[in-house]
Design a protein around this nucleic acid. Sequence first.
DNA 1: GACCAGGCACATC
DNA 2: GATGTGCATGGT
Length: 221
Amino acid sequence: MTGDKLTEIYELLYEYFGPQHWWPGQSALEIIVGAVLTQNANWGNVEKAINNLKAAKSLSTERLYNMDIPELAQLIRPAGYYNLKAGRLKNFINCLVEDFNGELCALRKLDTERLREKLLSIKGIGPETADSILLYAFEKPVFVVDAYTARIATRHGLIEPAADYETLRDLFQSNLPQETQLFNEYHALLVRVGKEFCRPRPKCVGCPLEKLPHDTQAENL
DNA sequence: GACCAGGCACATC
DNA sequence: GATGTGCATGGT
């Protein structure tokens, strides 16, 4: 029944918005870099930072490994928190180079749980960033939870407002078919409807989920 | 000028 | 274990 609700939401969103073609990035490395840069940041700003890296021919494992943090920080400046994120990117790249010979395919070969733990052990990669990397860079069937997911699930009464990350992830991941493509599209659609309709100050008029039960108490989340 | 955006680590209680 | 705070740019 929870699964039916989740499926209904998915179908409404897919019918309204169509496929989202996520992740917007051309390589696994670009997706991983984007996943770190988008932490609490506007995607448009992240794109500027990624374009800077591309223009400097620096979007490669080797270049990122050999670049110092201040130089990297200047390139990713538009994404915000640039000193912090430069360090976080280096933490990932150092792990990749030193533990996996710089080969993403070596990381991909780990089973999903071990890979998730490995990513979470890197300072600066938390649960959402790890799951984004697992799903979009490594195509593992993992559901990504973000602020929009939490807001939408709460407002539509799918979960209590205090639910933590793992509880929210389990809600989706355990009640839907374990399919990478479904999880990919579902998360992308939640971000899309979140951006357009489910803002902190709600403007839900015209939202494809408008007719579903809606907890007005949760609107200021 | 305030608010917001595809979080995370760390300090403090 | 829960709650608060720093990190920072650019668009609305």
